[in-house]
Amino acid sequence: MSSVLVLALTGAGLTLLGLHALIVKAHLLRKILALNVISSGIFLLLAGLAARTPGGEPDPVPQAMVLTGIVVAVAATALALALLLALRSATGRTRLDDDNGQ
């Protein structure tokens, strides 16, 4: 049981670590990595706690949810990277411009 707690707490830590990097880091590739770390942390919390069943057989529902989540995260990462490459070829920049487009 304690393993569940350790790994779920790791998930919480990863989420906050990713959030910090998402805000602080300027390079877009780094922001995309940070979002992936955030979702991994949440998945760990979601499916990690599924292992705390009394019978020992883990709850399959959160596991299926995490499978869905992983696929969604891959899709989002692919789109974000394509946007990054398009932005780079249009402007030469790999970070966001803060001037609100005016």
Binding site: L35, S39, I42, A80, L83, T91, R93
Partner: peptide, 25 residues
């Protein structure tokens, strides 16, 4: 396409993904 639209779309995507991640938590 074009710099400003791509910049806005990129920011929008990041914000949107962060928003749904928080929701999922």
């Amino acid at each position: 396409g074009g710099g400003p639209a791509l910049n806005a779309a990129m920011r929008y995507l990041l914000v949107s993904l962060l928003g749904s991640a928080a929701y999922l938590l």
